[in-house]
Amino acid sequence: MTPHLEVPPALQTEALSKQFGAVQAAREVSLEVAAGQTLALLGPSGCGKSTVLRCIAGLERPDAGRIEIGGRDVTRLLPEARNVGLVFQDYALFPHLTVLENVAYGPSRRGQSRLRAGATALETLRLVGLEELASRKPAQLSGGQQQRVALARALATRSPLLLLDEPLSHLDEKLRGELRADLRALFTQVAAGVLIVTHDQREALALADRVAVMRSGELVQQGAAREVFTRPATAWVAAFLGWLNVLPQPGGRALLVPEQAAELGVGEAYPVLARQPTETGESVTVAHLLGPLTLNLSAREAGVVGATLRLQIDLARVQTVPDDRAGHY
């Protein structure tokens, strides 16, 4: 996936490990983000993904491992020397500075004159569409506006690596949808390497080229976003990514049945176990031979469901993976 061999990756971590007391927050985490590429580090809360991010930013010192940013070893450097742009989950905007001063802070700390920094900040604010709020204080902004200012503040540093910690978690559903599209466009525009830490698989799918799934401090799968979502490596990854039908099998295996594998209205009739209305139609569970199968039906499809449902599973599309869901989560 490295587009040009001579361009060093925006970020490379090798076997990063960090322990807090008895808890292994990160175990040998190796990641790579090429310049211009977006990687989502995806995992449930408490899996250690934020620790990895803080290690990369220099806010936490790893117990072992190596971090390179733009080909430069930064493992031992202080945060201010690493040249990364970090967007905090709670934004961490400076309450005593205006929007413009917040965004100009990075450039001026990195040696630009006051005038130059102001111009850079204004230009970046224009990029996120907030130039008319430049003289406001953060407390006078809505959540979505604060998020954009935090993003602009990180972008204004012109860092080759942008780090985002749960960038949309504090926003409501509608805003999240809008910002997702904006972010994606922005990432292509700035050409920096981007690492997004998130627990939301939809966010990862919408924003990232590549996805790394993390569980209890360890990476369990890494690959192109589409690939990871369509071919989860284990039952746990599938369930975490929102697969409805992860059916345990004897011998520590599990079957992954994608919804597209089911053809309705043909084949055998299976008894319906449960029906649940959803926002787009109905979710129906039938007693299939493979196990209880849940299907999301549109309102029209659901209209013909009686006590039984006829369906046929295309076994070629069913995947068999190791079932690793027991034990730790």
Partner: peptide, 10 residues
């Protein structure tokens, strides 16, 4: 977080 933000900003 505020101090951390200042540090990562240089």
């Amino acid at each position: 977080r505020l101090l951390e933000a200042a540090r990562t900003l240089g």
